[in-house]
């Protein structure tokens, strides 16, 4: 039973690695910036899951702590990236309410359609 659980964990970790590789392909090929943001965000989620499963495999609980820290850090990075493309600045106050049309913001249409690869 224990052995079967171990192999189940290893198999889960392998499939998570395959998922990470697929996301890496999406991150490299683009084509738009939002594909990349989503790919990085779900890559972070995959890493959190991988660390949890991996700490089960090696039998140490420390991996769970790092996984929790990752979940928090991933959130910060994604918020910073989205602020960067929405306002082209990082210190925007929370009650800055001029939202407007996304296509008129500073990112511009050329960057949103992703002509960078």
């Amino acid at each position: 039973m224990e052995q079967a659980l171990h192999y189940l964990n290893v198999g889960t970790a392998m499939f998570l690695l395959i998922g990470m590789a697929l996301l890496l392909g999406r991150l490299l090929s683009g084509p738009t910036l939002y594909d990349r943001i989503l790919a990085v965000n779900s890559f972070g989620t995959k890493t959190v899951l991988f660390l949890c499963v991996f700490s089960l495999i090696i039998g140490r609980q420390d991996g769970i702590d790092i996984a929790i820290l990752y979940a928090l850090m991933n959130f910060i990075a994604t918020i910073a990236v989205l602020k960067f493309f929405r306002y082209s600045a990082l210190d925007v106050s929370m009650n800055y309410s001029s939202r407007g049309d996304l296509s008129k913001t500073v990112v511009g249409k050329a960057e949103m359609s992703g002509e960078d690869t």
Partner: peptide, 12 residues
């Protein structure tokens, strides 16, 4: 060449 993609890749 896209610096934004490079920043994202450094996070990865």
């Amino acid at each position: 060449r896209s610096l934004f993609a490079i920043v994202m890749l450094q996070g990865v």
